[in-house]
Computed example of a mutant assay.
Amino acid sequence: MDVDRARGVLLGLACGDALGRPVEFASASEINAEYGRLEEMVGHGTWNQPAGTITDDTEQALCIARSLVEHQGFNPADVAERFVAWYDSDPFDIGRMTMRSLSRLKRGDAWDEAGQHVWEQSREGQNAGNGSVMRCPPLAIPYASEREHLVEVSRQSSQITHADPRCTYGCAVLNLTLAGLLEDADVPLQDALEDVGSDVPDELVTALRPLIHGDAPGTLETSGYVIHSLQTALHDGLVAESSEEAIVTAVNRGGDTDTIGAIAGAVAGARFGATSLPDRWLRAIDESDELETLAEQLVEVT
């Protein structure tokens, strides 16, 4: 595996997250009115944080990556404990389903029970957010060549907080696509949709299949709904001609900018490598060195 592209997965995720953080929830027109085309790390804005600040997207991805390295493999109970410890640190940004699931974990639910309970108690429209797909890319690095196992651990990582099949299989499709990119597949998304399994929700396949050939619907949505986030981020990550173009395009669409930017960044990072990411962005992100080291260690996880 090309280590530079493994680094690109984690660093690209962080760059998209940090670039999108100050404009999260803003519309494309609002971003344009304030920044023109947002291409630089800026401070304040949504959440009122310094330039280069990561959000829950990268913070939870770090939890997964650190656990994978420490345990030399995926340990969902340990990942759940790390999520709870992060939750107890009072993060400034946390999704509702994640918060509800982690609250249940604190009260004693097992790692594979909390998210299930929250999902069963959530109505349609509030039960399939993007909170698990944004954090799952670290799993694609050590399991890139073990595709069946990658599907299993990706779905389990989602189930900790997001048990809806659109979320669990969404994580699997994203990670299979990343694995394909890391392994030099010719048609990584097509391979992902073929390998994910027969139980994958039709809505997910219908939304993503056109992207195989570079097509896209007339409107790419930017809500926090997992189908919208994956469709838009995979489109931007797979068709862009550089990592910077993918991330800037995704973020300037508005909406859930940090998460869609993070997913697009992970995909573009897997395509072009960490060396394709602007140094000015990486210097602004305090966690860049740790993310780079973790990516190198994840390549060696067996």
Results as ranks from 00 to 15, higher is better:
residue 104 R to K: 12
residue 68 L to T: 01
residue 80 A to D: 09
residue 97 M to H: 08
residue 77 A to N: 13
residue 81 E to F: 03
residue 66 R to V: 03
residue 116 Q to P: 01
residue 89 S to M: 08
residue 88 D to N: 13
residue 113 E to S: 11
residue 93 D to L: 06
residue 85 A to V: 15
residue 70 E to I: 01
residue 82 R to A: 10
residue 69 V to W: 01
residue 70 E to W: 00
residue 112 D to P: 10
residue 90 D to Y: 05
residue 90 D to S: 13
residue 70 E to C: 00
residue 79 V to H: 13
residue 120 E to S: 04
residue 89 S to Q: 11
residue 101 S to W: 01
residue 68 L to M: 02
residue 67 S to W: 00
residue 77 A to S: 15
residue 110 A to E: 13
residue 80 A to E: 07
residue 114 A to V: 15
residue 111 W to Q: 04
residue 74 F to Y: 15
residue 72 Q to S: 12
residue 96 R to I: 07
residue 72 Q to G: 05
residue 89 S to R: 12
residue 115 G to F: 02
residue 97 M to G: 05
residue 88 D to W: 05
residue 79 V to D: 14
residue 61 A to F: 02
residue 81 E to M: 09
residue 82 R to E: 10
residue 76 P to S: 08
residue 121 Q to N: 14
residue 85 A to E: 15
residue 111 W to E: 05
residue 59 E to V: 03
residue 75 N to T: 05
residue 116 Q to L: 15
residue 63 C to I: 02
residue 58 T to E: 01
residue 117 H to F: 13
residue 119 W to N: 03
residue 77 A to W: 05
residue 66 R to S: 04
residue 66 R to T: 02
residue 120 E to R: 12
residue 67 S to P: 00
residue 108 G to C: 06
residue 92 F to Y: 15
residue 85 A to K: 15
residue 109 D to T: 05
residue 90 D to R: 08
residue 115 G to R: 12
residue 104 R to P: 03
residue 95 G to H: 04
residue 121 Q to F: 02
residue 83 F to A: 10
residue 97 M to N: 12
residue 69 V to N: 00
residue 105 L to Y: 05
residue 115 G to N: 12
residue 67 S to Y: 01
residue 101 S to D: 03
residue 77 A to P: 03
residue 75 N to P: 01
residue 79 V to S: 14
residue 70 E to S: 09
residue 83 F to H: 11
residue 105 L to W: 04
residue 74 F to A: 08
residue 86 W to C: 14
residue 117 H to A: 15
residue 64 I to T: 03
residue 115 G to D: 11
residue 61 A to V: 07
residue 79 V to M: 15
residue 110 A to I: 03
residue 112 D to R: 11
residue 82 R to M: 09
residue 66 R to W: 03
residue 98 T to N: 06
residue 120 E to Y: 00
residue 71 H to F: 04
residue 98 T to W: 01
residue 75 N to L: 07
residue 90 D to G: 07
residue 78 D to C: 13
residue 69 V to H: 01
residue 82 R to K: 15
residue 98 T to A: 04
residue 74 F to W: 09
residue 71 H to M: 07
residue 104 R to E: 06
residue 102 L to V: 05
residue 77 A to I: 10
residue 89 S to V: 09
residue 100 R to Y: 00
residue 115 G to L: 12
residue 97 M to F: 00
residue 77 A to H: 13
residue 101 S to R: 00
residue 88 D to E: 14
residue 67 S to N: 00
residue 94 I to A: 07
residue 74 F to R: 12
residue 80 A to S: 13
residue 103 S to D: 06
residue 113 E to P: 07
residue 94 I to W: 03
residue 72 Q to R: 12
residue 115 G to K: 10
residue 81 E to Y: 05
residue 121 Q to P: 07
residue 72 Q to W: 03
residue 86 W to P: 15
residue 114 A to G: 10
residue 84 V to N: 09
residue 114 A to Q: 08
residue 109 D to N: 12
residue 101 S to H: 04
residue 118 V to Q: 00
residue 59 E to S: 14
residue 97 M to A: 13
residue 111 W to P: 06
residue 59 E to M: 09
residue 100 R to A: 11
residue 77 A to V: 12
